[in-house]
Structures are given as C-alpha cells and as structure tokens.
Design a protein around this nucleic acid. Sequence first.
DNA 1: AAATGAATTAATCAAATGATTAATAAAAAA
DNA 2: TTTTTTATTAATCATTTGATTAATTCATTT
Lengths: 206, 206
Amino acid sequence: MNIKTEAKYSNTEIKIKDAAKSLFLNKGYSATTTRDIARESDINLAMLNYYFRSKRRLFEIIMFETLYEFLSKMVEVYNDDKTSLEKKLKLCSEKYIDMIIAEPLLPTFLLNELKNNPTSFLKMPTTKMIMKSNFVAQYQEGVKKGIYRKVDPIHFVTNILSVIVFPFMCSPIIMKIENLSKKDFNIMMTERKKLIPKWIIQMIKK
Amino acid sequence: MNIKTEAKYSNTEIKIKDAAKSLFLNKGYSATTTRDIARESDINLAMLNYYFRSKRRLFEIIMFETLYEFLSKMVEVYNDDKTSLEKKLKLCSEKYIDMIIAEPLLPTFLLNELKNNPTSFLKMPTTKMIMKSNFVAQYQEGVKKGIYRKVDPIHFVTNILSVIVFPFMCSPIIMKIENLSKKDFNIMMTERKKLIPKWIIQMIKK
DNA sequence: AAATGAATTAATCAAATGATTAATAAAAAA
DNA sequence: TTTTTTATTAATCATTTGATTAATTCATTT
C-alpha cells in the first residue's frame, strides 16, 4: 500500500481492520465479538460501527481483501511464459509454502468462510484464471507431445494444491503424532518445497 | 449401535445429539445456538441442559464420538497384514472417498475445531497408530528392498491423505471454477478413487 | 390405586452482544 | 479567531443467548 492510498485511511480504521483480521483468522467470524475487536485494537467500540457500519460489513471487507491478496499471489507464478512447467512447479511450491508459513491460518480461514458464503467468491475474476493459465497450457502441451500422462487438468491443479496446502491444515494433528514443535513443523514443510515438485513430476511423467 | 446400547439412551437424547451434530457440522460451534438445536430436534430448550448440562459438554461429546468414529474407520484398512501396500492404497482411497461423499462436512469440521481445541485429541489412542501401522511398515520394507524411494513416512502418509481429503475441503471452489453441480463434483471425486493409488505409486516407485 | 421418580414444559434470569445516541474533543475550513 | 466538520467517548438500548426454575405430565414401582 503506497502513501497516497494510505492517507485515505485514518489510523483507527487501520487498527480496527488489523485487529479484526487477526481475530477472524484465529477464531472465525462467529466466535469473534465486536468487543474483542475493540479491545484488541484499543479503540472505542462505537468506532467500529462509525467506520464500518456493522460487524458483518467489516468482515466482508476483510474477507474480500484477504481473498483478493491471496488469489493474486497464487496466480502470479502461473502465467510467466518464460519459465518451464518444471520451473513453475518449483516456484509455486516454494512461494506458496513460504506464504502459508508466514500466515498459517489463512487456508483454513478462507475455505471455512467460503463454505458458508460462496457468493463473495463469484466476484473474484482471478478464480477461473488458474485453469486458463500458461501453467495448465504447458501441461496440456506435454500431454500432446506424449511426455505427460493425460488427465483432466483440474486433477493436476488440485493435486498440487492438495500436497502444498493440506498439511498446514492438519498441522495440529501432524505435530501431535510426530511430537513436533511449531518450528519443527515448519522445517518439515520447508523440506517439502523441494520434494513436492519431484513428486508431481513423477506423478505425471510417462 | 446395537439394541442393548440403544436402549440406554432416550429418544429425545438421540434427537438432540443428531440435530446438534448436523448443526455443528454445518455452522460450527459458535454459530450454532442452543435454540437452533432445540428447534431442529423439536424438543424443549431445557431438555438440552437436562441431558447434557451445557452446550459445551454436548459439543464435546459429539466431537469425541465423531472423531473416534472417523479415526476408527481411517485405521481399519491400515493394519490388515494380508493385503499388499498397493491393495491397501486402493482400499483406503475408495473407502475414504466414499466416507467423505457420505459426510462431506466432516473433514472441515474436525480440522477446524481441532485447531481451537487440540487437547481433546490427546486422548485418542488411534491417532499415533497410523504411523505404526502395517501400511507404513510395508512402505519401509519396500524402501529397504530398493523398490520405493526413501522419504520420511510422515510425508508418505500426509500426501495420501492430502490428495484424498483436500479436494473435498475445496469443493465450493472447484465447483465454481469448473461449473460443477454437487453431483458432478462427486463423480469427479469418484474418478479419483482409481487415480489416486496410481499417482501415489508413481510418486514412490523407483 | 397411590406413591415415587423421571421427563417435559413455559417462564424467567443474568450475562453477552451488536448497535445507537447524545455529548464532547479534535481537526479543518472560514 | 470563530465556525464547521470530523472523530471519539461513555452510556444505553434492544436482542440474543446459555442456563435455570418451578410447575406439570408421564411412566414405573409398590
């Protein structure tokens, strides 16, 4: 966010949004109260309604921004026509894992709240772009050339995201059965940055 | 549940638990009110506290039972020492996908509520059993024999569960970008029953 | 049939929660 | 400086929500 756009927003407005985002991500929409948000952002309760009208509207703004930011980051790698499919695999594996390590609550939050509110998702133009990306095209070319096994591209994309994202959503379970600290867990996820591209290639290569 | 154990529980008790489970799975703990549960199960509000003392306790009972049932089903396949690793892969892929198609809200619900409450998970003996199962042992034997690539078994197990479970958690997204109905989506998941074992084998085979 | 205990109901409580209001302080414009 | 607009505060409202109570019905035992 540059200085110009930042100037548009008051300090309290930003404080409220930051606190609200943190709380929504940690506890979800329903478990977060407006008083939680007021306390956490150290502002008067009435300020929330003054700037955002209602808890629901505040949530929807945060949801939209978070989703938009997330999807933008997701798509970035996919459309670089200079890199090979294998390079893209490496890049996105690294990038997504770094992204989720930095904000581990994001995937669960997004999937969770999207489940109850699939409408807000309609407005995102980024969504369908993944399937029309250079990345998918490269896979399909590989299939034509006979290098890669043929399978519906949606499976291909789903599998990649599955092995990247899902382990984070299971982190409490994995940490428990393997006796890992948060730090250990992140090391394990970092290991996967290199492993995942190999696994995916093995999955598709003839 | 057989007749004997069933007789222990009154009709209303079961009605409350069924309605509560359905609501908790759909809306989560916080978004579900005791009055929702009373309405849905068609009982008097006071009955909830009469049989379960509090909303929290009702939730914990449901959570425990649901988790126990889920984990039990999960582990069943893993310890059959008559079947090969590849057979087990097929079996669990089919079984888990059928299980989740029958109750698609389960994974999100469990992972979600476990995030906030990792303690209840400690009591489950089933949890750590997966890593000590015959299934994992067979993989490690394969590694020794030089048939399979060596990787920490936790990655092996994580990958399998990832490609099975994660797509269900993304169902709203997948359905949106692919323009699928619920039925279409389930067909796609059913396709994966056969594909997943192949993918996993390709991932590990030298 | 009478007595006892369990199940059920309607009414109510106290606390929590989203939201508003009226008064005040701070900042910007005149 | 004065006026006007914007931001902030404490107090309050109306609902909602989890839980309880006292009265009543139903089932079981004696």
